[in-house]
Design a protein around this nucleic acid. Structure first.
Ligand code: MN
Ligand code: MN
Ligand code: MN
Ligand code: MN
Lengths: 219, 219
DNA sequence: ATTATTTTTTAGACTAATCTAAATATTAAT
DNA sequence: ATTAATATTTAGATTAGTCTAAAAAATAAT
């Protein structure tokens, strides 16, 4: 049986490997877990004992098949619970992550599968992230950063790269949410900022922001 | 912040106090928690430090106001999640306790209150136990044990005293569930067993069983 | 009122998870 | 190729929660 803590380490390793496309280093894990490097080394030994990771001193770690399955299932649970919170309990997308962080550790195969069915087998969570199905398969999708679009382009918001709650609340304040239709009215060559029309309103978005929004170009 | 473990102790103390109507002893708690008496003494010291219980060596413990609030809220969450599992995810009443045992520890005031609303502010859980409201108030109700009824009485099942999953599955097999209408056709003076009609079918119930079922006499 | 039984507490040790500080390996810079 | 900087591991301690075995207190039996 994997402990709450072990599960969080596996998720952290998964996340880092996904981003960096190479074995996760001790410091990177320590930063992600907000803990000391020494603690990480201890845990890596334990996870390695359990056959959940491939670990050699000083060489960094990658998830084993077993570890990867657990991590994927955690992501599945996390994103399904986030979907539940938004779709059924009317939470906004900036309030669900911390709660799902707790709920993802509930252990019951049947629960997650019934929840999945209850939600209608959603493919993406409230932030546009793909939800692995019961076999651990993710749905892939073409998505492009808003920052890459040009003047007069139209697009639909389908996800966010950054998940920080303050960023999400910033988007709320600009009326930007999943499904929002955007129309690029101006693009400034110098600072890359954009004037975007949404629901008839024009808002200015800096490049820092447009680089965090995934869209699907509409025609 | 109260830990998962501390919460379970508070619940155990609450449960024992409710049943025995007197301070809970170390051994009783140890039995309820399936742990050693020594571990209990350790924990009682810690809970006492935190002001969650009233504790004096050798004298047994009772919950403080603070501890009682936490315990009641745990029961609220437990029973709301059980209701969710049965009403929304179609679990049977013999499958929900263990899952709710995990879910009751999710910390979010807003979550539990939104869940309550989503479920339509239910007053009783799938086993007929009262669900405390946001203020910790339980709904009281007249309920009598089936074993006390006599021949020709009619009654509706409104709860079970015993929560053991095997017992619940036994009731499933006899088609007895919350809301079932019962009609006592025979009562044996010697062994107190009953022949009860339910959905047109006659079933024999021993006293061991009828002493675990709460009913409301219908006229 | 002693003695026996039961209940509770203490003593001492163990594991998981954490920390700081120091030691060692690896990588980057000169 | 040394030296400097960075990354990682070890050493040693700490805390929550647990255990067994032994001591002490409370209760029951004679
Ligand atoms: Mn999240
Ligand atoms: Mn998400
Ligand atoms: Mn229950
Ligand atoms: Mn219940």
């Amino acid at each position: 049986m994997t402990s709450h803590t072990e599960e969080n380490y596996l998720k952290a390793i998964y996340k880092i490997a996904e981003k960096d496309k190479k074995p996760a280093g001790t410091n990177a894990i320590a930063k992600e877990m907000d803990t000391s490097a020494a603690s990480v080394t201890d845990m890596l030994k334990r996870l390695s004992e359990k056959g959940l990771i491939n670990y050699q001193k000083y060489k960094g770690v990658s998830l084993s098949t077993k570890g990867s399955k657990i991590a994927t299932n955690l992501i599945r649970k996390h994103r399904l619970w986030e979907s539940f919170l938004v779709k059924k309990l009317d939470f906004t997308w900036d309030k669900v992550h911390d709660i799902a962080e707790q709920m993802e550790h509930i252990k019951s195969e049947e629960l997650v599968n019934r929840l999945d069915e209850f939600l209608g087998f959603p493919k993406f969570d409230p932030h546009g992230d793909p939800i692995p199905n019961a076999d651990g398969k993710f749905t892939l999708r073409v998505q492009v950063l808003l920052s890459l679009l040009r003047k007069n382009d139209k697009a639909k918001v389908i996800g966010v790269k950054e998940h920080d709650n303050d960023f999400l609340r910033y988007l709320n304040s600009k009326n930007i949410q999943l499904g929002s239709e955007l129309y690029i009215r101006e693009k400034n060559d110098y600072d890359k900022s954009m004037i975007v029309e949404i629901d008839g309103e024009k808002v200015t978005l800096t490049e820092k922001v447009t680089k965090q929004i995934y869209v699907k170009k509409s025609a």
